[in-house]
Design a protein around this nucleic acid. Structure first.
Lengths: 239, 239
DNA sequence: CGTCCACTTGATGGGCATCAACCGAAGTGG
DNA sequence: CCACTTCGGTTGATGCCCATCAAGTGGACG
């Protein structure tokens, strides 16, 4: 489950935090990094759990969930490979972080990490920029939740996921023509991301399929055959 | 409209950024601060406008609006006195920032401010913490937009505003018993904050009034006579 | 082959949007 | 000084989108 992390084999080295900090900071981070594998569905941070460490996602997807006592849920963030999980300085988590897929994490002890931060402003700055990005993403999502229809919501989520994790279909020229990827979320998680019910999500998937915009196979695999139309739907061009 | 800013008369000195940075940093910030008055409704940042400076709000309220070409709006943030407006390092604004009330700002030239940041990690850290707070607030709001009913939304907004700008009613003992304040938002702005229409907002106000939870006078002035009930409504205790 | 579970599909209803009329306060101009 | 306009807000009537409730489907797995 745990072990030393070998940066030279790191899959996200060029896009993660590590590529944004000074060489000196990176050299200090490397020896305190630990590799960790997490199974689907495991909660990695909640309330007062998981406060002892911070992590960079190497592979997999993490959902950040806000819950109310009465059982209502809202997913308020999705973190993808190269994203950072956990906040330095935080003394408690207001959110639940849970693995929606199998995960590989590059973990740091919080105290060791914060010590390095103190000596390396470039690390703090990189985290600050990431926080601003997360804020921008959150506000984009607020617009979606407050002002978009169910159809636009589902289309938007698919576009958003696709831009983060799509791999071009082998043998097909041009990345824009057809996209294929595995959904990192269940229908329930999609509903909780969009402020909808699973039934509505299901119906919108049906619409997208009958309209020939996407096709699915199995529960997770999805192919977007008309990315431009999907994009237009996401922005409300009601054609 | 503009002039030197005198920190020793500053109304938010003890709660703003300035109180969170090193003394050395504060001493460098003071001479570059400029005072500025902004009338209601003025846009202070949008797209490529207002990129030249950053500000601390001394008095008044700023709304951050996300807009789509088709005219749909969503308010994605409210900034109150002592809050910071603008992001260092940003090269463009994804949002429109607009004065919902008359404003007093303490403004800094972006370049001068960023220079000071480079030499004072405490300043960068203070901004980072504020960004994390904003992120937390945004995610709280995402739950509201995605999962709360109109009634809960309106109650939540009133609670949120009250906790930021309420002044205890003179002559009444205990702050919890009755709260009084002026709404910094029009009905339209309230609707745009909550992902509702003005009509629905108006109806929910009516409900709150007939239930004896709040009373209003004029368009902006509001008195919360049962803060505990309002709080319960905000969290969905459907009594 | 039976059970389970995630998902789908259908029927119905409610919450909120939409459309429309009205109201009152604050100008505006003759 | 008073009709007229304007504008933000309220109130009412109607309808639609999406939630809710309920039943069905199909793949995975023992």
């Amino acid at each position: 489950m745990r072990g030393r992390y070998y940066c030279d084999r790191c899959a996200v080295r060029e896009v993660s935090l590590c590529s944004e900090v000074s060489e000196a900071a990176a050299k200090e981070l490397a020896p305190i990094a630990h590799h960790r594998r997490i199974p689907v569905g495991q909660v990695i941070q909640s309330d007062h759990q998981g406060l002892g460490w911070l992590a960079i996602i190497v592979s997999g997807v993490v959902k950040l969930v806000k819950a109310q006592k009465d059982g209502r849920l809202q997913i308020v963030g999705l973190q993808y490979p190269a994203d950072f999980v956990g906040h330095p300085y935080a003394t408690k988590h207001a959110l639940i972080a849970e693995a929606t897929t199998q995960l590989e994490l590059c973990c740091f002890s919080r105290t060791a990490f914060e010590n390095i931060m103190r000596n390396h402003p470039s690390l703090e700055q990189a985290l600050y920029r990431r926080a601003l990005n997360d804020l921008e993403t959150a506000r984009e999502w607020m617009f979606l939740l407050g002002r978009k229809t169910a159809r636009e919501k589902v289309a938007s989520l698919l576009v958003s996921i696709a831009t983060r994790i799509t791999r071009p279909i082998p043998g097909v020229a041009g990345d824009k023509l057809t996209l294929h990827f595995d959904l990192p979320l269940s229908r329930n998680e999609i509903a909780d991301s969009l402020g909808l019910t699973i039934e509505t999500v299901s119906r919108e998937f049906r619409y997208l399929k009958t309209a020939g915009i996407v096709s699915t196979s199995g529960r997770r695999s999805i192919t977007v055959s008309k990315p431009d139309v999907l994009q237009a739907l996401a922005e409300g061009d009601c054609t």
